[in-house]
C-alpha cells in the first residue's frame, strides 16, 4: 500500500488537490451566487441547486476546456516545434514523428511494448496518436459543455435584466462566449510559452520539467 502510494503520488496528489479545489470553488461560487440573488431581492438557493445550475457548470467547463486545449496543443505541436535550450523541447535534430526504431513500433516493438504498438494499420496509427486525440476530444467536449451551460447561464442573466433569451446558435456568436473562452486560452498559452522559455535559463533541481542544474543553457531536450 505504502509503495503504491509512493509510486503513484503524482497522480494521487493532483487528483486529491483537484477535488479539494473543486469543493472550494463550489462553496465560494455558491456564496457569490447567493450574494447576487440577495442584491436582486431574490431568495438564496441551496448548495444542491447551485451545483446543478448553469452558472456552476459553465464556470467549471470553461476552465476545463482551456486546460485540455493547452495539453492537446502542447502534445501535438511539440512533435514538430522546437525550443533551443529548453527541456520542454526535443533535441534539435529530432523534429517530426521520428523513426519506427526510435518509437519502438511495428517490427521494432519490444517484448514489453503495448500490443497496439506491435500492430499495423489503423490500430498502430490510433495508438500512436492516442494521447493527443483523447486530450483533443476532452477539449472539444468541455468546450461544447461550456457553450451549452453558458447559454443557459447567459439567458438567466438576460431574463434578470428583463431582456430576451438567445438561442445556442446566437450565444456562440455573443461576446460573452468568446470573452469567457479567450480569457482562458490566453492564460494557458502564456503559461506554456513561459515554461518553455524560462526553463532555458532557470532550474528546479530534481524536477523532470527542468534541466539538471549544471546543464548548459544551450542544452536542448535534456530533463533533470
Amino acid at each position: 500500500m505504502k509503495r503504491f502510494l509512493r509510486e503513484n503520488s503524482l497522480g494521487l496528489v493532483f487528483g486529491l488537490l483537484f477535488l479539494v479545489v473543486l469543493v472550494g470553488q463550489a462553496v465560494a461560487g455558491h456564496a457569490d451566487f447567493n450574494r447576487m440573488q440577495l442584491s436582486e431581492g431574490l431568495p438564496e438557493v441551496s448548495l444542491g441547486r447551485y451545483l446543478t445550475s448553469a452558472s456552476f457548470g459553465t464556470d467549471v467547463a470553461e476552465n476545463w476546456q482551456s486546460e485540455y486545449l493547452q495539453f492537446f496543443l502542447y502534445t501535438f505541436l511539440t512533435v514538430w516545434l522546437l525550443q533551443k535550450g529548453s527541456p520542454e523541447s526535443k533535441s534539435l535534430d529530432e523534429a517530426g514523428l521520428e523513426s519506427d526504431r526510435d518509437q519502438k513500433v511495428g517490427a521494432f516493438a519490444t517484448d514489453d511494448s503495448p500490443p497496439w504498438a506491435r500492430a499495423r494499420g489503423w490500430r498502430l496509427h490510433l495508438f500512436s496518436n492516442s494521447l493527443g486525440i483523447v486530450m483533443g476530444l476532452i477539449f472539444v467536449g468541455s468546450w461544447a459543455a461550456q457553450s451549452v451551460a453558458g447559454v443557459a447561464a447567459y439567458n438567466e442573466e438576460q431574463l434578470g435584466d428583463l431582456q430576451d433569451p438567445v438561442s445556442w446558435a446566437q450565444y456562440v456568436r455573443e461576446p460573452d462566449f468568446w470573452n469567457r473562452t479567450l480569457q482562458n486560452w490566453q492564460s494557458e498559452l502564456l503559461a506554456v510559452a513561459s515554461i518553455a522559455i524560462l526553463a532555458i535559463y532557470l532550474r528546479q533541481r530534481g524536477s523532470p520539467q527542468s534541466k539538471p542544474v549544471g546543464a548548459a543553457h544551450t542544452a536542448t531536450g535534456i530533463e533533470g
Binding site: Q37, L42, V45, S53, A54, S55, A152, A153, N155, E156, Q158, L159, G160, D164, P165
Partner: peptide, 9 residues
C-alpha cells in the same frame, strides 16, 4: 415561456 435557472419569461 422560457425558464432559465431562477428566472422565467
Amino acid at each position: 415561456a422560457d425558464v432559465y435557472g431562477q428566472w422565467a419569461q
